[in-house]
Every structure is written in structure tokens, then in C-alpha cells.
Design a protein around this nucleic acid. Structure first.
Length: 513
RNA sequence: UCCUCCUUAGCUCAGUUGGUUAGAGCGGCUGACUGUUAAUCAGUAGGUCCCUGGUUCGAGUCCAGGAGGGGGAGCCA
């Protein structure tokens, strides 16, 4: 097959520099519309999307035949002139002069239509090509890059914790078991303890690696395999740790706002809430947070319980108006006299509205339960998903909750000087119902206290001898935290299902693709 | 492990108190159309109603059991 000879490949993202010039693009057909003597091809090349116009009178016969025969996701190369067109996403269009087919795709399973999640997850390897998934991947990349940038600018050393570990280190969660030359090894649930060892060598370190949890969780915020970033800082206390968390989150969000305007637009992300991250994050003690959740204390003039009750009323109203809208459209279709296109439009709209009603209805069912659970929250317990929502609903920035009951936190958290029932841990809760994205705190420095807590938690002492060495040899105050990459990306992109934030999610029942 | 919802065409779904030959839109294919933005318009093909058993003159619809999936609880990033 004849190809277009070219010395240099141009990418869609760079088209601005080529306005008025002839370029060659290579990519895949994302969508096609055609009329007599004209075809509109939406080309995607990985760097972006671009409409290419192939007009019969402007190209050779073979090129036009090629354009007509392209199926969805066929690969081709196209030569043409770059023109500015404000109507296009990205602002440019290619007016083709030549088109050569690279490969013709079989019938593509992902249609220009809504699909169910299971169908899409079975075809995740193809779904990644779709516009939203493409935008998500670009933003995930920005997040990863700016995380490295943030720590590298501050002279942190990236060091890696092992993935195979010999003990179920924190003893709290279910881990994946695997055979390690005859010994039982577990897949790491956290690089935390190793991070501390590395911080005692380098001062400031961070790990960036995969983490595994074997809990049989089937919720939209859990993965069995996810990526975690865990900085650890020698000579840092809890306050310095919280300062670092806040500065870090602000930095990453700003990078995305600066670099990914188009991608956020594709995702229809309202960025005003992201911009509010520039404000100071409230820092609440666990005790105060509990009072707020239970509605015993107002915050910013808002009460948790009455706010939820208002939310419920609003949701019920939305259900009513949406249902009314649906029946009005149905009546108009039944009345007849409507053009077919208009009927289709209304049928599709009705489908969407019905899905919305279902969402609202499950909310309407959940909110009363949230209210009950918030009212009856028992001091000393951990926050459930709904409690986090109830609390963060009252703020428009992420919220830090610190000074947690010792009983519900890991053994290595530093005991509070004022009250040994509490530890100097901190959680960062993202707004808009995204929940906990960071967990961290100051670490216990006293060897004696650690020994006591390891016993209390019923953990095997011999597995922690090396860890206790860190207290035997030059113990210093230190702190750190763990950030869940996928949860952060989910919040930034306003994607409520975490499985879309990682290329190939591993959740219960999903090993392929 | 528990609670809850779902399974009908390639996809998204409708299918009334159980009743003849199971429907729509999208996608596919054929054709029309010179600027489309999920293009539009006409035509056309496409079904193991998740599986097993039961009730019934008759089951996509009712009952029992099973399988698969969604959402949530617990646990957490």
C-alpha cells in the first residue's frame, strides 16, 4: 500500500503552530459523518482529537475512496492544511489533500452510545481510547508528574518499599497471600514502616508504588490494587505534617488546573470547587468533628442534620420535577405529529432522565439513613462513608481531622501528650463525597510504648525487631502520610467510580483484561 | 459474610391484572443528501427473554432453587 512520504510526524496538540501549513497526521478514526462528496473524520492520535474534512473535489480519487471505506477505529494517515475553526474542540481542523489507510478495523464494539459499566470493563483495553477515559489518563499523568515534582523540588529522595513482605504488618486488613520460595509472603498493604527506615537514612523520602488489599470490598471507592504515595520526614511533628499535606494537595491541584484545561472540559468538571483549594483547609480535632457530625455544633452557620434535611427536600423536589418532565415528553410523543428525529431525541432524553431519577431515588433512600447514623454516632468509632460525607458537606475545601482515638488507629501512631487515649494521626477528607484521600500522622518514638502496643494489637514481636531498631539507634520525632493516587484523581476529575481512574483496575472478580 | 437492586436483539432499555406472531432507540448493512458536531432521512437484517425445576389450558411476566453482575455495610487510600 502506498504511503504518504513525510519526514516529520505532527501531533494534534501542536497544530496551532502549523496554521496555514500542510502537515501529516497519523492516528485512528474516532468518529465519522459523511455526505455526498464530503466526509468528516474525527481523528485521534493520542495527543488529541481533530476533525479532518475530506472533500471529493480537493483530493485524488483513491483518497476519497479510502475516506469512505474507513470504519470506526481504523488507522490511517492524512495530509492536509491546518485551518483555525472556533467551532472545533481544540480550535483547529484539517482540510485533507491526501489520505492513506493503515489498517481497517473490524466492527468496533464500543458504539457512540451509552453502555453499561460491565460491558465497558470487559473491553477496558478499548475503552481507554474513548474521549473521557483519554482525558482521565492525561490528568492522572499530570498528577503523577507533579507529585514527583513537588517532592523533588523539596529535596525528597524517592525510595521504594518492598512489595513482598513477611508479616501482615499492621494487622488490621486482609492481605493477599503468596508463596515466596516456600515461605508465606504477603503483598504489601503499605510501605509505611520501610519508609520510616529510609527516612532515618535520607531525612526526607517518599515512596511511590502499588499497594494491595484483599478485602472483599464492592464499593465505588475501593480497589484491590492501587498506587500510593508515602512521604516520611525526619524531625517533623504533626503540625508540620499537616502543613506539608496542605501544601502538597494545593500544588498538585494547581498543576492540573494549569495543564489540563481541555481535559477538565471534556470531563465536564466544574473547576470552581477545585479553585477553592487555594483557601486554608480547616483542621478539626476528632472530638470537634464528632460534635459537628452529630449536629451538636454548627460550622460556618450550618448544622449537619438540618443541612441534610434540606438536601433531602431538594432531592425529593428534583424527583418530582424530573418525573413531570418525563411524562410531559411522553405525552407529546404519543400525541403524534412529531418528526422522527425529534421523537428520538425525546426518547433518549427520557432514558437519561429516568437514570437521573434512579440516582435521586437512591439518594432519597440514603439520606435518612445518613441522618440516623450521624445522630447516633458513637464517640470513639471510626467514620463511615456517610459520616465523611455529612462532615465534608459543610465545607468547600478538603478538611483535616486529627487527634484520633488510639483504639481505632495503627500501633505506630504517636500517643498524644495530653491524653494517652488519643494519637497524633490525621486524615484528609476530600469534598463532594470523595472521602478520605490522605491518612498519616506523627510516629511513636518511644521503644517501650511501641513494644506495649505491638503486644496489645497481638502482633508477632519478632517481625518488628528491625523496626524497633529504628528507636534503639537514634530515635527522632518523625511524621509522614499516605496518599491514595486513584482517590485523588477521582476527586480532581469528579469521577465517582474509582475504577475509571486506573488503566486496568483490579477489583473483586476482575482479573481480565 | 450481610443488606438491597438487576439479568429481554451487538448496545441501552420498554414489555400492563399471566393471553395470539416479544417491541423501541442506537449500532450494523443498503440507499439518499456538499459543512456535519451522538448529523439527518428511507429501507433492511438481527431473539436460548440468565439457568434449572414448579404452578397453569397458557409463563418474558407468578413461585422455589442456582449462576452472574451493580450499589451499599464492615474495612480502608
Amino acid at each position: 500500500m502506498e504511503t504518504i512520504t513525510t519526514n516529520k510526524l505532527t501531533y494534534i496538540k501542536d497544530l496551532e503552530a502549523f496554521v496555514g501549513q500542510k502537515v501529516t497526521l497519523k492516528g485512528w478514526l474516532a468518529n465519522k459523518r459523511s455526505g455526498k462528496g464530503i466526509a468528516f473524520l474525527i481523528l485521534r492520535d493520542g495527543s488529541g482529537f481533530c476533525q479532518c474534512v475530506v472533500t471529493e473535489s480537493d483530493v485524488d480519487e483513491e483518497s476519497f475512496e479510502n475516506a469512505k471505506s474507513l470504519t470506526l477505529e481504523s488507522a490511517f494517515e492524512i495530509e492536509g492544511n491546518v485551518v483555525r475553526d472556533e467551532k472545533q474542540m481544540g480550535g483547529f481542523e484539517l482540510q485533507a489533500t491526501k489520505l492513506r489507510t493503515i489498517s481497517i478495523a473490524e466492527e468496533y464494539p464500543i458504539a457512540k452510545k451509552e453502555h453499561g459499566v460491565d460491558f465497558l470493563m470487559d473491553r477496558r483495553h478499548l475503552w481507554l481510547r474513548s474521549r473521557k477515559q483519554w482525558a482521565l489518563s492525561k490528568i492522572r499523568n499530570t498528577v503523577i508528574f507533579s507529585i514527583h515534582q513537588f517532592f523533588q523540588e523539596r529535596d525528597f529522595v524517592q525510595m521504594d518499599a518492598p512489595i513482598f513482605t513477611g508479616n501482615a504488618c499492621e494487622g488490621t486488613t486482609t492481605l493477599f497471600e503468596t508463596d515466596f520460595f516456600g515461605d508465606t509472603a504477603y503483598l504489601s498493604q503499605s510501605g509505611q514502616l520501610y519508609g520510616e527506615a529510609m527516612a532515618m537514612a535520607q531525612g526526607l523520602i517518599y515512596t511511590f508504588g502499588p499497594t494491595f488489599r484483599a478485602e472483599k470490598s464492592k464499593t465505588r471507592r475501593h480497589l484491590a490494587e492501587f498506587w500510593m504515595i508515602e512521604p516520611e520526614m525526619a524531625f517533623y511533628d504533626l503540625d508540620m505534617d499537616m502543613d506539608m499535606i496542605e501544601e502538597f494537595i494545593k500544588y498538585v491541584i494547581k498543576s492540573v488546573l494549569d495543564k489540563n484545561k481541555d481535559e477538565l472540559e471534556i470531563l465536564e468538571r466544574d473547576t470552581t470547587s477545585l479553585q477553592k483549594v487555594a483557601n486554608t483547609f480547616p483542621r478539626l480535632t476528632y472530638e470537634k468533628a464528632v460534635r459537628i457530625i452529630k449536629g451538636e455544633e454548627d460550622i460556618n452557620g450550618k448544622n449537619s442534620i438540618t443541612t441534610l434535611e434540606e438536601d433531602l427536600k431538594e432531592v425529593l423536589e428534583k424527583i418530582e420535577t424530573t418525573n413531570k418532565d418525563i411524562s410531559e415528553r411522553e405525552t407529546r410523543i404519543e400525541a403524534g405529529g412529531m418528526k422522527k428525529g425529534e421523537v428520538n431525541f425525546n426518547l433518549n432524553k427520557i432514558g437519561k432522565l429516568k437514570a437521573e431519577v434512579k440516582e435521586f431515588e437512591s439518594l432519597a433512600e440514603n439520606i435518612p439513613q445518613w441522618i440516623e447514623s450521624a445522630k447516633n454516632f458513637e464517640f470513639g468509632g471510626d467514620f463511615g462513608g456517610s459520616d465523611e460525607t455529612v462532615l465534608t458537606r459543610l465545607f468547600d475545601t478538603p478538611v483535616m481531622v486529627y487527634k484520633w482515638p488510639a483504639a481505632i488507629k495503627a500501633f505506630y501512631m504517636k500517643e498524644d501528650e495530653e491524653d494517652p487515649n488519643f494519637v497524633k494521626g490525621v486524615d484528609l477528607l476530600a469534598p463532594e463525597g470523595f472521602g478520605e484521600i490522605v491518612g498519616g500522622g506523627e510516629r511513636e518514638t518511644s521503644k517501650e510504648l511501641l513494644v506495649k502496643k505491638i503486644k496489645e494489637h497481638d502482633l508477632p514481636m519478632e517481625a518488628f525487631e528491625w523496626y524497633l531498631d529504628l528507636r534503639r539507634f537514634g530515635s527522632v520525632p518523625h511524621a509522614g502520610f499516605g496518599l491514595g493516587l486513584e482517590r485523588l484523581v477521582g476527586w480532581i476529575c469528579n469521577i465517582h467510580h474509582i475504577r475509571e481512574t486506573i488503566p486496568f483496575p483490579r477489583v473483586m472478580g476482575r482479573l481480565l483484561p
